[in-house]
């Protein structure tokens, strides 16, 4: 399966297992979603479980919170992460705080799916990576898969989770793993071991990172599409790096991070999101606090620049093989 099919399969499996799972969002019903992630679900489960909504993000999330309070397990979709901002009040002030403020009387067991990230000439409002906004909110979990196999297992775990989960899907790798070489023909998931997705139910627990590659000289922390760009760059350069795909940003798998950095003594963080106050800053602080005496070089961050996401200069902005390669050379020189 490609990643879209894996995500579709996760919702299919959960809707089959749990009659309280409902899917809602713009164009998700009859049409099956602008990325086809919900294709066929309305036909199979009916309009009262999979339905199209008006174009109002605060409404979609607000309604999902109310449905959650009733006892359902809603899986709302926000068409692009760039359009999640109108729903911020409902996510930050309501979904994230409902359990806490009612001392457990009411909960918001919702999973907000949203395609995110760049690399598709999406320009300013179809490319953003706003995960840092959500990792800053107590009461929300943030999950980002990087393979079809993980996408299905993590989405099932997110839907089963009794807390609100933001599930960001890297749309650049919906159809194939992107190595950052925009000038080469794109690959699809066919034949990739990570795309061998089981048909039925399985879950990957939230809060657990995945070691993509084991190495000795450098730890690279990444997630989403960057996992593939980093892997390919490391392979091309012949660097013996430890690559960790975080998968869940909050709560983060701190043991995996600590063990790796203490082993390698060097840490690099790669994300597409803009740098200042991005999630990389939190990662950097955690590593500095916990691995200070093991560090042999300053922690490096390769991120999007502190600018809105550009259209024509996309490949100058995107943390691709060139930028990652230079950072690797720099961190290994020290």
């Amino acid at each position: 399966m490609n990643m879209v099919q894996a995500i579709n399969s996760a919702m299919d499996v959960m809707m089959e297992r749990d009659p309280d799972v409902v899917v809602l969002g713009e164009d998700v019903g009859y049409f099956g979603g602008v990325f086809r992630a919900t294709a066929g679900l309305q036909q199979k489960y009916g309009k009262t479980r999979v339905f199209d909504t008006p174009i109002t993000e605060c409404g979609i999330i607000g309604v999902a919170v109310g449905m959650g309070a009733y006892g359902l397990r809603p899986v709302p979709e926000i068409q692009f992460a760039d359009y999640i901002y109108p729903a911020l009040d409902q996510l930050v002030s309501e979904a994230a705080r409902l359990r806490y403020r009612s001392a457990g009387e009411f909960t918001a067991p919702i999973t907000v799916r949203s395609p995110f990230g760049g690399g598709i000439f999406g320009g300013q409002t179809h490319s953003q990576s706003p995960e840092g906004i959500f990792t800053h909110v107590s009461g929300i979990k943030t999950v980002i898969p990087s393979t079809p196999y993980d996408a299905k297992g993590l989405l099932i775990a997110a839907i089963e989770d009794n807390d609100p989960v933001i599930f960001f899907e890297p749309k650049r790798i919906y159809n194939g793993p992107f190595d950052g070489h925009y000038d080469r023909p794109s690959k699809n998931w066919a034949g990739n071991a990570d795309a061998q997705v089981l048909e039925g139910y399985y879950r990957i627990d939230l809060g657990k990172a995945r070691t993509v590659r084991e190495g000795e000289v450098l730890t690279i922390l990444c997630y989403g599409a960057m996992v593939h760009v980093v892997s390919s760059t490391v392979a091309e350069m012949g660097i013996d790096a430890d690559i960790i795909d975080l998968r869940t940003l909050v709560p983060i798998d701190i043991e995996a991070v600590e063990a790796s950095v203490k082993k390698t003594g060097r840490c690099m963080i790669v994300h597409e999101a803009t740098r200042t106050s991005g999630f990389g800053a939190e990662l950097s602080a955690l590593v500095q606090e916990r691995c200070f005496y093991a560090l042999e070089a300053p922690i490096e961050r390769v991120t999007g620049f502190d600018t809105p996401y550009p259209h024509s200069l996309e490949w100058a902005y995107f943390p691709g093989p060139v930028r990652i390669g230079e950072a690797i050379k720099k961190i290994l020189k020290d």
């Binding site: 309604v63 919170v65 959650g68 809603p74």
Partner: peptide, 10 residues
């Protein structure tokens, strides 16, 4: 307000 509507829809 939308939460109440969502509850009613459920």
């Amino acid at each position: 307000c939308p939460q109440a509507v969502g509850w009613a829809m459920a």
